[in-house]
Design a protein around this nucleic acid. Structure first.
Lengths: 219, 219
DNA sequence: CGATACGCAAGAGCAGTGCTCTCGATTGTG
DNA sequence: CACAATCGAGAGCACTGCTCTTGCGTATCG
């Protein structure tokens, strides 16, 4: 039942975006709006469920794309496969992507349940970098750290790499976060219309940017 | 009158986000909602006016920050000043930023009036890069183009540099777009909550990322 | 087998929304 | 002075999220 509600809500998401109407999904299910409240105490709770599902769907897609690269030592291929999977998923599910990475809904505060699901995609990316560092096959990275990192940023790097990539140097972790930012920045700018009248060859441009970041990280 | 409406609407924007209520702003002005329709034919038109104002406000802020660097040959300083201005403006006006760079409002299609205003910020960034290339003081860029660019991407680069930086090589333009993506990606991820539980030292981290991009571009 | 309790959906209703239309009043102009 | 243009008020429509009460059906327990 809750799954069916989510399914119908997902279809409305595509057209209505974040302001989907409970009454509309209820109508589609030949129910009355108040009946939905038995399953989801509020609209925000339904949104939260959709968000968690979306994070997991995206995460699973990216994990599968990375896993599909047979030779685990072809780090650059893994990076390109994973990032392309993010973009592909976003293009296929623009409303869900906007829900995850777009402007937060005004009154809505993301509960902590979402963070585990949200972490799946970054973990895949971090794994690729960590694998490369661990096996010592990382090229000399394409960036030149111009000034020493401040202590507070180092502390953040320490926490960010956590137990996924504990051995990664701070400088490499910073470059990895650059890749993460570049990835979601590129997808967001494209999906949110900032590429209109600027970039036409979007897939190629995306690949170009991701290749540049791969160079930066030494993949 | 229209200015006053926008002013009141701006204050509501901070709390209500994109779904601001015409009736609420009308109440604040001791008017009835239907009276507003004499000045803005619809809520979307009011939103459009706010968006254009916001683009111009951001653009003016960034232009001023760049212009404040006395020595025009200190490219890295100009880049840091401009990018910090973007982040500072976004932190000071989160709702406006979300309106510009967040998920697009479902039914809303940005009219072409906005693109001129939207271009002001990228133009400042492109100018910095073009000035550096023009005066020949660009360092050897920190990236190694690993594969030749495809023809369609080159065409996009050609159009993107337009008449702002007509002499810029495609590879440098691509790096510049990387910087642009990184800038707005970093600000969006921070503002939209993706840095929660990940990055604490946000200003320092931002500077670090922007410095890395400056290296990439050779600034 | 009968009575009770539970799960579930329906309906009415409240306060709020964008938007349209009509109707007065006020103001400025020929 | 009369006319016209402008502007705000009010009512009303269809819609929203959400709450509360009511009633139906079924399953469980004595």
């Amino acid at each position: 039942m809750m799954a069916e509600i989510k399914a119908v809500a997902r279809t409305h998401l595509a057209t209505d975006g974040a302001n989907l109407s409970l009454r509309a999904v209820a109508r589609d299910m030949d129910m009355v709006s108040s009946a939905l409240y038995r399953y989801y105490p509020s609209r925000d709770d339904l949104l939260t469920a959709l968000i968690i599902d979306a994070y997991n769907d995206l995460g699973a897609t990216v994990e599968a794309a990375d896993a599909a690269v047979a030779d685990r030592h072809k780090l650059r291929e893994r990076w390109l496969a994973a990032t392309r999977a993010v973009r592909g998923w976003a293009l296929a599910n623009p409303a869900e992507y906007a829900l995850l990475y777009g402007s937060p809904v005004p009154g809505y505060a993301a509960p902590t349940d979402t963070i585990a699901a949200a972490a799946r995609t970054p973990v895949v990316l971090a794994r690729i970098l960590a694998d490369g560092f661990g096996s010592g096959q990382l090229a000399k990275p394409g960036y030149r750290p111009s000034a020493p990192m401040t202590e507070s940023v180092r502390a953040d790097m320490m926490r960010a790499r956590g137990d996924i990539a504990p051995e990664l140097p701070d400088e490499l972790m910073l470059a990895g976060l650059s890749g993460w930012i570049q990835l979601f920045g590129a997808v967001s700018l494209e999906l949110f219309g900032q590429f209109n009248n600027v970039i036409d060859a979007r897939a190629e441009f995306f690949d170009e940017q991701m290749a540049l970041m791969a160079d930066l990280m030494g993949l």
